[in-house]
Amino acid sequence: MRILYVEDSRSLRETVGRGLQKAGFTVDLVGDGLAGLDAALEGEYAVIVLDIMLPGKDGFEILREIRQAGVESPILMLSARVEIEDRVRGLDGGADDYLVKPFAWEEFLARVRNLARRRFDHHSDVINLGDLRIETRSGRAWVRDAELTLRPREFGILEYLALRAGEIVTRNEVLEEVYDHSIDLKSNAIDAAVCNVRRAFAEHGVEEAIRTVPRRGYLLEKEISRKLE
């Protein structure tokens, strides 16, 4: 999932960017308000993390213009400003959350994940689809009590498909949300990863959980059940 982080402090921007990448997110980093506004209007982000005191255009203005332009990405305001009126102004202006610097990394990440899920109308750390249970926080998945053995990318694909269970997810969307365009669309890396997820399901008695829709993409069933042996 793609995150936009607009922050003028170079050190914080780069550190948070690295941390988000480690957590499996794709991150766009921007250092000033004007470029941040352009990026928010042009890209489609799972979450936008916005500082308030920015050169060029402050965070409140960016927030207002983003919402006026109809961008619905969840927005987390991340600022050193602690005053109640600042928080109220941010939340009333359309922000979904407000976090004050300095912050605990785990808390920041949890808030980002929560906002990212909210985009898919999902509010919990755990996704349950029949016998399949996915914990987004720990990056682990189970079929009943048996844990699936998945690599981070494979888990990313499963999580994204699970968040949109019952919907067709295009290869391009997987490429953007999970791979951050780091591979070519024509590459078979996505197919290989999906194949590995299917194999992991099969090892635990789940067949045809992920269907391929010709020339469109993939679809994860909403109700996944393990076949009785």
């Binding site: 914080l12 941390g19 480690k22 050193a80 610097k101 300095p102 605990a104 990394w105 785990e106 990318r153």
Partner: peptide, 24 residues
Amino acid sequence: AHELRTPVAELRSLAEVALVPAAE
């Protein structure tokens, strides 16, 4: 407080992110 919050956030994030293992 504001002048100190940002560098403290930088320090804390730097340390906490460094402790997180690198992605695959």
